[in-house]
Design a protein around this nucleic acid. Sequence first.
DNA 1: ACCTAACTCGAATCGGGTTCAAAAAACGTA
DNA 2: TACGTTTTTTGAACCCGATTCGAGTTAGGT
Lengths: 250, 250
Amino acid sequence: MLSAMTTGDRKRRERETREALFIERAHERIREEGLLALQMSKLAADCEYATGTLYQHFESKEDLLAAVAARTTLQRAALFRAIPELSLGTRSRMLAIVLTDIDFAAQNPDYYRLTQYLVTEVVWANVSAPRRMALLEAGKPISEAVHAVVAEARDRGDLPPAREISEDEMGLGPWALNVGMQSLANAQGLLDAYDIHRPYDHLIRHFHALMTGWRWEPRLDPDEPTVVRAETARVRAALRDAGLCDPGAV
Amino acid sequence: MLSAMTTGDRKRRERETREALFIERAHERIREEGLLALQMSKLAADCEYATGTLYQHFESKEDLLAAVAARTTLQRAALFRAIPELSLGTRSRMLAIVLTDIDFAAQNPDYYRLTQYLVTEVVWANVSAPRRMALLEAGKPISEAVHAVVAEARDRGDLPPAREISEDEMGLGPWALNVGMQSLANAQGLLDAYDIHRPYDHLIRHFHALMTGWRWEPRLDPDEPTVVRAETARVRAALRDAGLCDPGAV
DNA sequence: ACCTAACTCGAATCGGGTTCAAAAAACGTA
DNA sequence: TACGTTTTTTGAACCCGATTCGAGTTAGGT
């Protein structure tokens, strides 16, 4: 009885290790050769397993991709955990969240492309329900961080009391702005066609406009480039001091 | 010589008609059965042509999808042409642009999904250069409308004079907000997980926050639901009067 | 040592996008 | 109108890669 349980445990552990190996290697291959080049049989061979074994872990290729995305989302989400505790004003902490996301996207260009591809109906339809949930779940800490900062801002009076808008709905604005800018920035040739460069600088400025529009104090004019840049630098420095930001980030 | 030219013309016309037929039918099938179900050989058979003939018009399946998207983008873009001439304040005209887009998305749910799928690196890579350009080109009238409204707002003093931001870069904010909200709203189960409903109502409120943050007059508090709703109704009415909006829209 | 259940293997299957050699049509010429 | 040449159309064959599944292997229990 006891032995059955422990050997059972070992097998489960081994299974998880193998799954992690598949996910890890898949991510490497995507980083190196792109989504296009990823092949199930090649990946299996790479890990020294048969194709069929790979399919014991993932119902489909899309399912595997979702697992890769979930793993990276977990890493990404971890970056946001400590932000609500930063010794910065609430509005600056909100900026910290945006900057953290921008930097993460810059350092993991394939992550956004993968996510974008995944949530496409065609692809999403082939992801198993548990993995969909895992992916959604993995992002929760981010919205929790946003929620906490918004709630504190209201408590402190930095943000007017809610009338008909919840914390999450308030966070939806910057979230959508972020996602949208990532999409536009990633669409090959799109922004070039409009002669728009450095999209993330614009993201930051529009973010400030949005916050100021909601009367989040201290208000900051998005059209004061010097002030905007100074605030960005200040918050980045705070992130760096707290060790929440790779020194590599611009 | 003359005859050669005229018969050549006829052939070109016939070719274009056939291409339009393919695009039209492909769109129908996508509407009815979804992107997933579209098959090149089935589509060709549906139009009573051989598979190979279809490939005389489109280099690949993705190329065909881009053509479908371009056609719909042309229709969509046409809706924006007359907006700068509307007898509304500049800020309300900006809202008119956003509302028009929301309504179009609501009436053409597959259009956004298709576009989202198309700009994915994996898919975009298989679209021929001319069609990519055609798709980008098709959207130009939209950015021209935005450009015109922003320029007029500055002229009239509704919007402070540009410091370091062009008209297009100003329009980038609402654009990103729109695209982002569409993405989030389309990602099956995502917003539900955060208990967020009616994403487009929030889009409108965040839009107002963004505009107010840029000091676009007359400023409007995004957290005054009554005022926001009234303004939405007013602008929708103006669109309807000008015949720029299907009466079916909410 | 043997039996059985669970797992692993990879060659075979399958589906659908894409190609291409043959057939048909269109065109120009005598 | 008949004939050679070029262009277009055709759809069965090809190819690629995701997925499956029956044979072979391993591990646990007796």
